[in-house]
Design a protein around this nucleic acid. Sequence first.
DNA 1: CATGAATGAGGGTTCATTCAT
DNA 2: AATGAATGAACCCTCATTCAT
Lengths: 206, 206, 206, 206
Amino acid sequence: MEEEKLPRRERENLRRRQEILAAALELFSEKGYHNVSMREIAEKAEFAVGTLYKFFRNKEDLYKALMLEKAKEYHGVLMSVLGKGGDAFAVVEDFIATKARLFGKSLSVLRLYFAETRGASFNIKAGLDREIRKLYDEFLTRLASVLEAGVRKKTFRRIDPYYMAVALEGLTNAFLFCWQEDPERHSYEANVPLIRDMFFKGVLAE
Amino acid sequence: MEEEKLPRRERENLRRRQEILAAALELFSEKGYHNVSMREIAEKAEFAVGTLYKFFRNKEDLYKALMLEKAKEYHGVLMSVLGKGGDAFAVVEDFIATKARLFGKSLSVLRLYFAETRGASFNIKAGLDREIRKLYDEFLTRLASVLEAGVRKKTFRRIDPYYMAVALEGLTNAFLFCWQEDPERHSYEANVPLIRDMFFKGVLAE
Amino acid sequence: MEEEKLPRRERENLRRRQEILAAALELFSEKGYHNVSMREIAEKAEFAVGTLYKFFRNKEDLYKALMLEKAKEYHGVLMSVLGKGGDAFAVVEDFIATKARLFGKSLSVLRLYFAETRGASFNIKAGLDREIRKLYDEFLTRLASVLEAGVRKKTFRRIDPYYMAVALEGLTNAFLFCWQEDPERHSYEANVPLIRDMFFKGVLAE
Amino acid sequence: MEEEKLPRRERENLRRRQEILAAALELFSEKGYHNVSMREIAEKAEFAVGTLYKFFRNKEDLYKALMLEKAKEYHGVLMSVLGKGGDAFAVVEDFIATKARLFGKSLSVLRLYFAETRGASFNIKAGLDREIRKLYDEFLTRLASVLEAGVRKKTFRRIDPYYMAVALEGLTNAFLFCWQEDPERHSYEANVPLIRDMFFKGVLAE
DNA sequence: CATGAATGAGGGTTCATTCAT
DNA sequence: AATGAATGAACCCTCATTCAT
């Protein structure tokens, strides 16, 4: 009973926070950090400007929180896939498919993901980079170690596992990017087998 | 002849324009569109602010001109490589190496390239996209047609040539991105053989 | 009897009001009207912000009430000293000493007193002035009338009693100000004889 | 010739700066630092808001510049009077009269002077205090040394010269304050002889 | 022409005040 | 009755753009 009562306010607050973040996500992903005003976010979230500042110290903080939250969420999912163990081949297959499902859910997130990780991020001075980049490095290292296991088991050729990971990322991102640019024409999910195939076997005949 | 036709004034003006664009390139690539002021560009180019407006209607226009100029320059080089004709295999090899040389010359351009093409570009409202995207589509189509020729000649497996092109772009960009992020640790040029290898043969053993 | 009449509720309310005023006094005197927020006062007084508005219509009103209360308190003490009657000389002596004791008790009040009466008060738009000024005028007039009696009795020279009062105020305030600025170095109370002396005899030798 | 040309721009700038300061002085002295907005100052000075920021880094800076400029101006005049040398008696007479003329010229300055030096100044965080207070201390010390000379020459009684200076300041300020409050009823200049008289001889008969 | 001082719209942020709980 | 979350007007300040010199 007590437990049910106490969290009510907390839950309410969390919900509000999420509503603000959702509004911000949509706007930022559509127009970019610098082309979105706090007033705009407030209006979209249907709060007063002042309310935003109850949840976030300032605009930068709001943006950081948004990015970090999404980063952690996606990071968690992908890391768990990579951590399952088992056949390197199977893990990579799972990874490609999971990435498809994960980003396939939200164009907005994908856009910010690209803005922040591929395009040099000029949005905020510093600090976000650091944390997100750390997560990404951690992920890339894990992916590399999975591939390394595959190399040791002779599943994969003797290629630097880190660069293999880089290549896999480049391949999957390229297709995600395609889809993001024109979701009507290009599907990422439909291309999962193709990606897998190209990554594993290359393009040469035979 | 053509050159002689341009009066001294015109040539002078072109030179000035280039100086402004060069200053802008450096600043934009370092700090991002929104964190660079016209005053800053003017100072770096050693002109008065007003002079910038003689050459460009406004800040957005200056940015567009810069991006378009670079896009055309790079586009021209890559298209000519793809147009040489000959063995699809050799053309792709040439393409990968040329891309390395091309972007390897200027980190600044590379950064803006990523900001504009990979990261969803939020710098300017719209319009730039259109023109640059058209150039890029043209380039991707040409690359695809080269690969298609390879498929027809059974050099490459029967994979949708457009997606093969997308994959090749993803692969090369991933390595360029690596290098751009940490030029000390990662070299794009040194990895050219690796990229070629992975693209052609994939990562599976045998 | 009177005290008994006030219901518990009333007494409770009065106590709360005083607590708010005490918190406000400390904060205002330390940081100035405009650098203190209602939230701050509420926190110091350990009430909710809304509660403050149960007792005072707005921030200005709270400030006015505080000033007026202190003004009345101090006014009462000084007026009673001036009303005691008797030798003008003795009354003035008493006045100087009483002022020392009175303001010596609270630096906070003294600071606000100066902010409000010497420094042109810019805290609130208007209105406070009126009431406080009236009290002050009343006090100055009474002081003048005491001095006038001294003039009539030939205790004092034939000087406009009002300006004599002004001079006495200036003299005592100057020393209070000294003390307020650096309580370690300057004591007002220790200088009471000096003040009396200078006021009565001036500074010339003989 | 050259000299005449160069300063033209400089002089123009100085004039603008003075116009801004004049507008600010009037507004600050009338309504206080916190009740005046930059927009208001700009409007009164007939400039755009941005122009204010060409001359002053921010609002605080503008206020500081204004206060310091006036402080230095008045400081200079009073110090020169105190530095003339000669009979301590005559110097003090001169000082009282000069102070009358000096402040008599501008009610606005006088109001800010009181706000800043008598009322505890809460306008700006810090720093101004320091500089102005230093000037004031310097002045008070000089005044004290003049009085000390008078004591040594037995012109004045054996009273701590610093406190004699404090007393003189209190006396003169009290009359200035009177005048400032109600310029119609009270004149400072007309009371110069009275002030001198009371300071020198006190109020006691004989 | 080239200049750069002047402009003022618009952004981020604060805080007195209100009102649903 | 007491609370404090929500409100939004108003502040300070920046910077793209213009235009008199």
